[in-house]
Design a protein around this nucleic acid. Structure first.
Lengths: 344, 344
DNA sequence: TTGTACGCGTTATCAC
DNA sequence: GTGATAACGCGTACAA
């Protein structure tokens, strides 16, 4: 006999309620409400008027169940707390909403296990599709294959994996790094170092490659290039910077950092050593986090169109949802934009 | 006859599939899967084994429909892009997940209209409840009343409204402001100004009041206190700071800013005027944004336990969901924590 | 143009 | 301990 509503709880209005009051059938109400073509304009008007009056709200759960397609798009992010991701989220939400979809988000917290759990949860919630940026730990992709088996389409953005076959959206990291490095070279710096991220991570690797290529193209000797690898967003960045800066003879006069936050740590370190920016050491980052504007001196960096990345990723997913032709999976590489500030 | 699955789409496993293969009824399968007490341990084992083997995933849509209660909690935030909110979100998600709920988030973008649309969407998705932080524009609360009519419980956090009756979680803004101001006084500053937010906003008002009270309690003349109101997060902050700093005779030797971002703007302004921090003008903010650590000098500020606020808000909602006694609506005011840095 | 009837996958009630 | 069966609210072939 179903669940009883507690006495204090008004039973929500349903299409049947409207049907009964108007003495027509549920189907007609359903059709009227969703602007089905074959329905008398007059009935449509009456239905809509009553729906409005009764403050009817469709039950999307029931609708999704019947249509086997929900209006929810799942998003899995490593962290909400980083400007890049929250901006991307903004873009995702924007496009999703414009197309009648809602967004349900999860945080993997950079842990692989959470990522797997999240994909399961989203699958259980029968989301229409998933947008995700992988964990730093992710090396096993069986959870993604399961999604494919269940025919839940997904798009990877920013943190993508080469050996997963799906639509992808990233920034042109190679070009971006190439440009920052060229900028440093043009500014006249002679001994340019790179504080890189884990080279197993595709983003870090591409930035590293862009850096090396720029050196080479400008007649620098790649073999002499000082590259220190560090874990992202960690005290580790500080220590790597320290090692780099304590080289006496060979101290770099400029450092290209793999991310703004790594650059901030390097900045702290440079100050701690009593050096000046950019006179003694110039510094460039990557991402254009809002904080780059507030540090002293403001940080030169590559702007990543985070919001645009989110929008594009969401658009790819929606395209995929509409056409059943998944012939080729596109990989969008968006351009970055150099922002020169006082640190170089 | 319902929707046909496209040929390429595997039909998802359901409890009926399991029931048929095991030659038992759906009901038993359902019970076994959710550890209902009245079910033979052996059947339970067999059901679970098969479910595992077939990679069965429950359809939460159907479940929610049947139970008239979804496992989704809606969250409406003014912006994702601010550390405070994304941290709060983290807390919310944490508690939600620990209790078997998922989070569906929306962004009002500081626009009232979006806020209203969001509440409707979430209601349509039949969320179990809603957590929200109001827009700066929000003055009309009829959308919240509608939620109450539909018996969708909600909790307000951070940006709350006095004349809405519901559980609330905020920080003790009055005390926080009182403490920062007292800190400035103890440091020996004599002419302390306040760059406040819009006084219509309860947060700004309370911080303003805490500021004034601290002055009064330490024998300062409230009437002489320089308070400049500015819109939050705007160029407006810069201009207000400028006006304040261009007072020749009466230039403050310390400024308590309503937020860290306002303080960053003030900082820019102070530098533009060729003044030193904290020698000429000391500066304190509010929130403890990560960037406070990277500016020069690092900013003294009040730490707001953003994540904790999110957790508490979510806990209040879950409590409310469990007990139908909504006798009293609690208002939690969490303590803040002074973080002294180089700017004072 | 409208109505009938059934299915979506799960849960809950009631009888056995 | 288990099995029918009727909801939950909506969408949609098919008939009228």
């Amino acid at each position: 006999m179903g669940v009883q509503f507690p006495f204090f709880m008004k039973k929500p209005i349903t299409i049947s309620d409207i049907a009964i009051k108007l003495d027509i059938s549920k189907s007609t109400v359903s059709r009227a409400l969703k602007d089905h073509p074959d329905v008398n304009p007059e009935t449509k008007r009456r239905v809509k008027a009553l729906a409005e009056k009764l403050d009817y709200e469709p039950n999307l759960l029931a609708s999704s169940l019947a249509k086997k397609q929900s209006n929810l798009i799942g998003v899995i992010l490593p962290e909400f707390n980083r400007t890049f991701f929250s901006s991307a989220l903004e873009g995702i939400q924007h496009v999703a909403r414009a197309n009648g979809f809602n967004v349900i988000i999860c945080q993997s917290n950079e842990e692989f296990e959470n990522e797997v759990l999240n994909t399961k949860m989203l699958a259980s919630n029968k989301v229409a599709g998933i947008l995700m940026s992988l964990t730093l730990q992710t090396e096993d992709f069986s959870h993604l294959r399961k999604l494919q088996d269940k025919n839940i389409p997904f798009v990877l953005f920013d943190r993508v994996a080469d050996n997963v076959d799906c639509p992808k959206v990233t920034v042109d990291d190679f070009q971006g790094a190439y440009q920052v490095t060229s900028h440093l070279i043009k500014k006249g710096y002679k001994n340019i170092a790179h504080l890189s991220g884990p080279l197993g991570l595709s983003i870090s690797k591409k930035r590293y490659e862009g850096f090396m290529k720029a050196l080479d193209d400008h007649g620098f000797d790649q073999a002499n290039a000082q590259v220190y690898e560090c874990k992202l967003l960690n005290e580790d960045a500080y220590h790597s910077a320290r090692k780099l800066l304590e080289l006496n003879k060979d101290r770099p006069d400029a450092i290209f950092c793999v991310s703004d936050y790594v650059a901030f740590e390097a900045m702290r370190c440079i100050r701690d050593l009593g050096l000046r920016i950019p006179e003694d050491v110039a510094l460039a980052g990557f991402t254009n986090d809002p904080a780059t504007n507030y540090v002293t001196p403001p940080l030169t960096t590559m702007e990543q169109p985070a919001k645009l990345i989110g929008e594009k990723a969401c658009e790819l997913l929606l395209q995929h949802l509409k056409s059943e032709e998944h012939s080729e999976f596109p990989h969008l590489e968006l351009p970055t934009n150099l922002i020169e500030r006082g640190s170089t």
